[in-house]
Nucleic acid binder design. Structure first.
Lengths: 208, 208, 208, 208
DNA sequence: TATGAATGAGCATTCATTCAT
DNA sequence: CATGAATGAATGCTCATTCAT
């Protein structure tokens, strides 16, 4: 059935809301919250400045909404659903590649720049924790516990290990960004990088 | 000998400069660069707003100066100088404790909040890279190469491993901050946390 | 036909722009550029301070715009178009009266006060030269050349004479302003003043 | 007799006062009153900023003092003392040359830039009128009256003529400054310029 | 609902003036 | 008297938010 006028209108409205949100993400990421202007967001979204306020109460509200949409992609969490079927190194390789693709695709420092706003604000922190951190950590902890129980891993403090490993990915990214062009990692092929990390996590640094 | 009038004056001047720098660090950390106001920095420093401009050219210059003083503490780099005498686990334990003390003592998220400004600004990035990241990474890489060569470590891509390990510490901190009160790490004693990380880095997750 | 909504809006906008320009002229004239404040200009224009910046990029831009609108009135240049038909003394009388009316009507010292800003600033100087000085001088020179060629004037260095005569009007005004109330010219009727100047320019000071 | 300590001190003091005044004239001329800073004046004078306030009550007071020193040079007024002995054209030539030297030597626009400050301020206007304008005008009027009475000039409204001629010199200068490099007067030799003006004033523009 | 001009509070910065040494 | 650091009022300008159309 063809959409009614009512429906078409609603879908237009939804679209406009999304446009604004996308624009806000882009601008906040590039400049940070304080240095972003509503003027620029409006331009980026292709709407008038006033229109933003028909959808969002304030610039701050827009930021909160942006963070709220930062849900972990289903595809990522899905990896863990079928995790039992894969060997750990294979899984880890998949996860690391997935994360690096994610960072790559959505703009190198988008995530990290938003992070600074999040760290500064208790409300945002809570939202982000609930929507991103907790789901991932829970999934990972469960995975490690199972593996540990089966004897495929040595006994682990899963709380610590998950955060250490999650942190490793995040921190590696940060350091790379800080080093910029001069980072020696720039010349390491992705495959080689991932392989080394997998080995580090699996075996540590000690000799066989 | 008693300080001359000249000397006393100079020391007063130095003190005032330091006061302003300290105040700036505090306020920038709490609010971020853009949302920090010179009024607040002046109040925090206990001087008039105009006085700031007798010492620093601009608010931006103040930020640069703050970042410049973020040199890695000598004590930290010193650890690596005498590194040969310690077993790796003992060294690692020392390093981790040192880092956590550092974070603890200098204000929980001070470092991380400044980092967001640093990431956004090429000039600051360069300064921070040169003064903090590079020295640490160089020291660590040399250490790992030596160990590897002696056969105490398996063959490593030291560039990757150092950044992964450095990143782990940084990222762990980030995640903890994001989780806040609700983090399970809150209830893990420092000693236990460090021990687990040491083991993870040494042996990885695989069973013996 | 009645003006469309669009047109009405545009005319309102034009009006506001003009209001601001008028206010700026007034305030700049009274206080000079540096001592004029945007606050005062806004008040004078009856708009908010921010509104100024919807129309002009900066206070400086406002000054430039003010100077740009100082085009010589058409009526003045028109005098020279039909100059051939008048005897020189009659023409001169017309010109002098026109200039004195102009000064009188547009605020006594407006022109002169702006001139100080103009003299100080190369860009403004160029604008004013191109829009006011050059057109007048060109017209006058052409006029004198023609008259000279016809033998109605003695042979003249027209470049010098035009500027000397233009300068006479300007300088007379300046001196009068400096002398203020105490000037003996205050008690000379306009007609008499103009007549004397005409005779001076025509015959000089020598006896017949 | 050698100067006493007392005297030497006083002369030093006088010198310093003069230094400050000279510096102020220079800076005010170059930038205008409002845009000149006490810092710059102090630097120019080679004293500390605070020292200025030991000699002058305020920046404004400094401006007043600067204007007060703008007395007409004796040499100029002296010209008129012995005026009787010279033919008018010779005298006029002397005066014009003197004025143009004066302008040339003391910096092209020094006088004119100060004039804008003077025009804006009643107190300064009065001072300048009394010290510069009035003496010149009085002298000139007396001269013209005498000449007129003797029949060497036609009957003149001396008040008007003196101001018209004084204004001519001033205005010519102004126009030249406004035209800058592009002025045709740039290529007219001084002698020729003066000669033309003398003839204009003496005979006017009419043919013999 | 969409628009965009108007608003005015808020900020970084300047600079004349003061005053302790 | 000389100094120059400290002061803080004043200013140009920005930008989130409102609201008449």
């Amino acid at each position: 059935m063809a959409p009614t006028r009512q429906e078409r209108k609603e879908s237009l409205t939804k679209m406009r809301e999304q446009q604004i949100l996308d624009a806000a993400l882009k601008v906040f990421s590039a400049k940070g919250f304080a240095e972003a202007t509503t003027t620029e967001i409006a331009q980026e979204a292709g709407v008038a400045e006033g229109t933003i306020y028909n959808y969002y109460q304030s610039k701050r509200d827009l930021l909160v909404s942006v963070v709220k949409t930062f849900v972990i992609t289903e595809s990522f969490l899905g990896i863990f659903e079928n995790a039992g079927e894969l060997e750990f190194p294979a899984l880890l390789t998949t996860v690391l590649n997935n994360r690096m693709d994610f960072i790559g695709e959505s703009g190198k420092n988008r995530l990290l720049l938003l992070m600074s706003e999040i760290l500064r604000d208790p409300e945002l922190k809570m939202i982000y924790d609930r929507q991103v951190i907790k789901p991932i950590m829970t999934r990972m902890e469960k995975y490690f516990e199972t593996k540990s129980a089966k004897g495929e891993f040595r006994p682990l403090q899963t709380g610590v290990v998950t955060r250490a490993l999650g942190g490793m990915v995040l921190g590696l990214l940060l350091i790379t960004l800080l080093e910029g062009e001069s980072s020696p990692l720039q010349s390491v092929p992705r495959q080689s990088l991932v392989a080394e990390m997998v080995q580090l996590i699996t075996e540590g640094v000690q000799p066989h």
